[in-house]
Amino acid sequence: MTVYLITAASGAGLVIIAALLFRRLRSATDDDLLTGATTSHTGSMLSALFLLAFAIAIVVPWTTTDAARLNTYTESQAIVESAWSGMDLPAAQSTRIRTELLDYAQFVRTQEWRLMADGKLSPDGWTRLEQLRREVAAFPAKGRDAKDAQAAVLDDIGDITSARRQRAMDAKASPPPGLMVVTLLTGLIVLLFPLLAGARPRGMSIVPLALMAALLGVGMYLCVDISRAFAGGLAVKPDAFTTAIAELQRIPGSG
């Protein structure tokens, strides 16, 4: 934030110095009109800066949210594949794996999802996966098919862990604070610029200004509201895990 303030102060200082120097030129003229070159140029540049910051503040969270949604399906699919991979293990072991995976999927959907709105994951989820990995690794697999199935299940659990790690990163991800500050600040300046330039709206001229203020307020609130992938208007829903739970329950021999 200090760098941003220094940069802004440097830019303002440069303008003041340039204005004082150019006033000494004979060809320079005073410009104090609302329709003058200074006001027109400044207004257009402020609008362009706001639109740039606003677009980035919308596109970045939108992209992050889409990636986070796809990753939840990757994790849920790995859960289902892990259950199917265990079908070649003895019945008791296969049932144990399906039960643990079903419990994990239900835990994520019903308990952990609420925490992700605050950018956190429950430590219990990591514990469940680590315990399942140790149990599968300790199975006394006999025969080539059983050993191959055991290795496949361990690989799938590794995929679940990797996807969960990515979900943890997605839950914490948010646009840079400086971007949100610039978006809010430029939006406020664009709103107040006519008044700062000396305009005094009267009568019906206040209506378009009020409409612009309302739309700017909605837009800036939207930027803040969608800044996290698992909270706000674009929040990722646990649909992937709901589907995975239904698929796990359809696997032969599952409860």
Rank of each mutant, 00 (worst) to 15 (best):
T2S: 13
S10V: 15
G11S: 03
A18C: 09
A19E: 14
L21V: 15
F22G: 05
F22H: 11
F22D: 08
R24A: 13
R24T: 09
R26M: 06
R26C: 04
S27H: 11
S27D: 10
T29N: 11
D30A: 12
D32V: 10
L33V: 08
G36M: 05
T39S: 04
S40P: 00
T42G: 00
M45S: 15
L46N: 07
S47Y: 06
N71D: 13
E75D: 12
S76Y: 02
S76Q: 01
Q77D: 13
A78E: 00
V80C: 01
D88M: 12
D88I: 04
L89K: 00
L89F: 00
P90V: 02
T95P: 06
T95E: 15
I97A: 05
I97M: 05
R98Y: 11
T99V: 11
L102P: 09
D103R: 09
V108N: 12
T110W: 07
R114T: 15
F139E: 08
K142M: 13
G143T: 01
A146T: 03
A149S: 10
A151S: 10
D156A: 14
G158D: 03
D159E: 12
T161A: 02
T161I: 11
R164Q: 06
Q166F: 00
R167V: 04
R167Q: 05
A171D: 08
A173S: 13
G178L: 15
G178Q: 14
M180P: 02
T183R: 02
P194H: 05
A197K: 08
S205H: 02
P208M: 04
P208R: 00
P208N: 05
L209I: 14
A213M: 10
V218H: 05
I226P: 06
S227E: 02
G232D: 05
L234A: 15
K237Y: 06
P238Q: 09
A240S: 02
E247G: 02
R250M: 10
G255K: 14
